[in-house]
């Protein structure tokens, strides 16, 4: 591996961009591949799989023995609303490998007393997301029920191409939300990516159970990125 390739890859990783280091195991040469670089043939298919799964693998492609070493950014789960659901979701998600950040401008909700060592921002999403921008490896769950707090973050998540966008609220609440998001300039296709009502339909009733439903939906969205639209998007019978 040459030093320039190593530095280039570390730079991609620091910037939270996916990258695959391709090593030719016969001649030792290395090539850094970025997502959607447009490689074709057997290598292109192997790269697509690597970016989708995050797995590294040795492959035979186009007559060469190659090692694909895959580096995906660690997913971040950004939760809008320091509510009861978030108190349960934060520790569960952290254990599952999705570190949580909670944003809520209401200081009575966003208090260290309620959240312990969870990364907590007692400020408006407009302010926090400017400092800590969303990206394709972020999931956003908006659970305040308050359009003043949720709407900006939802639009920002759609614009950033977050792999998961979910919003708490009944179908009726969501219908009104769709109207507001359209007025904010979101397209109908983008809005259709929002999982609402939020969470897989497991009959969740308590805040902690709803947290399980949301976390399961986030995991599925992450593991089916780039798969068929049907798998990534809320299907029938999902609610909370």
């Amino acid at each position: 591996m040459d030093i320039a390739a190593l530095k280039a890859m570390n730079e991609e990783r620091r910037a939270r961009r996916a990258a695959v280091m391709v090593t030719d195991l016969d001649d030792g040469t290395t090539t850094l591949m970025r997502e959607n670089a447009g490689a074709g043939g057997e290598l292109g298919r192997a790269l697509a799989k690597a970016f989708a799964t995050g797995n590294s693998a040795a492959v035979e492609a186009d007559g060469r023995r190659l090692l694909l070493n895959t580096h995906l950014p660690r997913p971040r789960l950004v939760v809008i609303g320091a509510v009861h659901i978030s108190q349960a979701l934060a520790p569960m998600a952290r254990i599952a490998g999705y570190p949580v950040e909670v944003i809520d401008p209401r200081t009575a909700f966003a208090s260290a007393d309620r959240f312990g060592d969870v990364e907590l921002y007692a400020d408006w999403p407009e302010t926090v997301l400017k400092e800590r921008p969303l990206d394709a490896y972020c999931a956003l769950a908006a659970v305040t029920h308050d359009p003043k707090i949720d709407d900006f973050a939802l639009k920002a998540a759609l614009d950033a191409g977050c792999f998961y966008v979910g919003a708490l609220g009944s179908r009726k609440t969501h219908a009104k939300r769709v109207e507001r998001l359209l007025e904010m300039g979101a397209t109908a296709d983008a809005i259709a990516r929002i999982s609402a009502p939020i969470g897989l339909d497991i009959g969740a009733a308590s805040p902690a159970e709803i947290a399980v439903a949301v976390l399961a939906q986030v995991v599925r969205a992450f593991r089916t990125r780039g798969a068929t639209a049907d798998a990534a998007r809320p299907a029938k019978g999902e609610a909370a």
Partner: peptide
């Protein structure tokens, strides 16, 4: 505001190698 933890490992071998 603290910076976003950028990488998937605290002791990242490739960062150390660099």
């Amino acid at each position: 505001m603290e910076s976003i933890a950028p990488l998937d490992d605290v002791r990242d071998p490739l960062i150390i190698a660099e």
